[in-house]
Design a protein around this nucleic acid. Sequence first.
DNA 1: TCAACAGGTTAGAATAATTCTAAACTAGAT
DNA 2: ATCTAGTTTAGAATTATTCTAACCTGTTGA
Lengths: 130, 130
Amino acid sequence: MNVVKKLRNFNLRPTKQRILLAKQILDGKNKHFTAETIQKEVLSNGQSISLATIYNCLNKFVSVGLLKQIDQQGEVTIFDTNVSHHHHFLNQNTGELIDIDPHEIGFSKLPKIPNGFESDGVEVLIKIKE
Amino acid sequence: MNVVKKLRNFNLRPTKQRILLAKQILDGKNKHFTAETIQKEVLSNGQSISLATIYNCLNKFVSVGLLKQIDQQGEVTIFDTNVSHHHHFLNQNTGELIDIDPHEIGFSKLPKIPNGFESDGVEVLIKIKE
DNA sequence: TCAACAGGTTAGAATAATTCTAAACTAGAT
DNA sequence: ATCTAGTTTAGAATTATTCTAACCTGTTGA
Ligand SMILES: [Mn+2]
Ligand SMILES: [Mn+2]
Ligand SMILES: [Zn+2]
Ligand SMILES: [Zn+2]
């Protein structure tokens, strides 16, 4: 079981629930999802897991770097399986996020970071509409 | 009363509450604030206004373009009196936003907008920490 | 001028995403 | 097999925001 190994690599006990979630979301494909949508997927798969556990697990996954958390527009937190540095299109009609490879964006000018601070990442959001 | 004129310009009835808020936030200085922080300011000024009204007014102000709404990190909505196109530093230590003039950022490369869509704005967020 | 009404305000209830509580369970070590 | 720290869970709590529905007020035009 590959997923168990991955969890162990991140010092996470491979519990039934974490394995279930990891199989669901860490399958190599990049996804954006919410806690609720994941629960629906799991339930419609005939399996079950509490929402509290999903939040516990997803937050844990984020804290070890298995997921990224994206807070944006409105009130639901979106999780992102693409933990490498990248940017997003935001489809304003649907709320859907689409990854943008960092190589597709180049800067010719950037502001100086305020004194006493250091940069902790630059995120570009390109809002699009039909 | 300048504020009344401004409200009228935006087809907003200059009610007591809107005038109070407009004086508080549309004083020419660029600010980022939440509904709660505005209420605290108003109350500590000896005046009073309900939170529902603050939300009603701020949302109205946003819908006519007097304010911008910024949803970011967590659950409180931040309003921005700078309605012109600009970017932000996000102080990760405090959650504070700092405006970045669009002239301070230049792009040497941007991705092509997906077919059937058009760009509706590019927002850069530079996360900083001490 | 002022009645009429569309639009605005408000307290408090409702909603909804997320976190907390505290009791039951389990993975992994010895 | 036993122990323990870590995990899961149902349901309660929290909290930002919106809704409800009754009351109020700015504006207008007779
Ligand atoms: Mn909102
Ligand atoms: Mn959160
Ligand atoms: Zn992404
Ligand atoms: Zn700003």
